[in-house]
Design a protein around this nucleic acid. Structure first.
Lengths: 201, 201
DNA sequence: GTCTATATTAGGATAGAC
DNA sequence: GTCTATCCTAATATAGAC
């Protein structure tokens, strides 16, 4: 045993780094081995195949991605507070992990069926939050619109800049990555201001 | 010559279909040949290598993507009209071509340097529109915010649902694709309503 | 459990007939 | 210009020593 647990963990971390940057198809087992400072054969010793290693990484990334979302939607927060927390927490996480959403989306796009099971095990239940939105609309606290569109808008405004970062950075910041990230810091607040402005009655 | 022009065109179309769905790394020359109903060797006869075929497709897709954006930003429209046209036109295009943004973004993410040249040749100049936003803010027509954040919001709200379609469809529509697309039809109007509400002074 | 060396296969690319 | 057959390399996977 000795290094067993540590090595397995090291492999998973290295694999996550490489898969997230290159995707399943673009990733090379050799590159993952290098990143983990181990031999290529060890990858197979621990995970049998590239596919199984990928599945382990994908599942881990997916549950991490949806945990915070689940927590927010089930906390029974008001629309205002849920949106503020969502924007703050997601943009903050994405500043640290900007490649995750594009990775997840790309793999799902390529073969939705293959990953369907992993996805359905991790999906957050949004219905409590949709009901809160509905209720506040009926009470006149916020203007009326389709609750799902409001939720989609919130998610879009927080996540898209990171998914589209390579383009956004070129179009808006002349390729200056640092300016992009500074703008994202301010955006934590800007996004909720924008949304709350749009829905205030 | 005979079928030359038609074959080349057929290859490009088939390659676009396959590359957009699977990405450069996930696409197979055999699959492209099948899609075009020709032999694999013909692909090399016309385009020499997979890389060159990909470059041709990517460049074509990119210019198509940015043409409308360029047109809108240089038309000298008011903020209200530009946003309305942007939302209507982009969501409409994306309903017909939902895979394009994720494709472009994934390839750029994987290797920004390799595609930098193609990108910079196609980038729309947004400065006229940013100036219009600035002007309308100073005139008090719309509330004050960072012009770039407003532009980012507009782009995010229109494009993200399509990039994130596989997830959005699961979370919000229990996997029902048709409901997703119906919602997108309504969204053409909903998005501009939402934005204009957020910025009205 | 970790390595080196090797087998296997998939897939891009080419040769050559028609 | 289009096909069949074949080559060749890159990359996954395994065998076997330590």
């Amino acid at each position: 045993m000795s290094e067993s647990k540590n090595t397995e963990e090291a492999i998973l971390e290295a694999a996550q780094t490489v898969f997230i940057r290159k995707g399943m198809d673009g990733a090379r087992m050799q590159e993952i081995a290098d990143e983990a400072n181990i031999n290529k054969a060890l990858l197979h010793y621990y995970f049998r195949s590239k596919q199984k290693l990928f599945d382990a990484v994908f599942s881990k990334v997916l549950s991490g991605t949806f945990n915070e979302m689940r927590a927010i939607f089930q906390a029974g927060l008001s629309v205002e507070h849920a949106i503020k927390r969502f924007a703050d927490s997601y943009i903050d996480t994405l500043i640290k992990n900007p490649y995750i959403p594009e990775f997840v989306i790309h793999e799902l796009n390529k073969d939705p069926e293959a990953l369907k099971k992993t996805v359905s095990q991790n999906l957050p239940d949004i219905s409590p939050f949709l009901r809160t939105i509905q209720k506040e609309m009926e009470e006149g606290k916020i203007i009326r619109m389709e609750p799902k569109q409001l939720l989609m808008n919130t998610i879009s405004l927080c996540i898209f800049p990171f998914v589209g970062r390579p383009i956004i950075t070129q179009i808006l910041f002349e390729g200056d990555e640092q300016e992009f990230y500074q703008t994202m810091e301010r955006r934590k607040k800007d996004v909720s201001d924008f949304i709350l402005n749009a829905i205030k009655s």
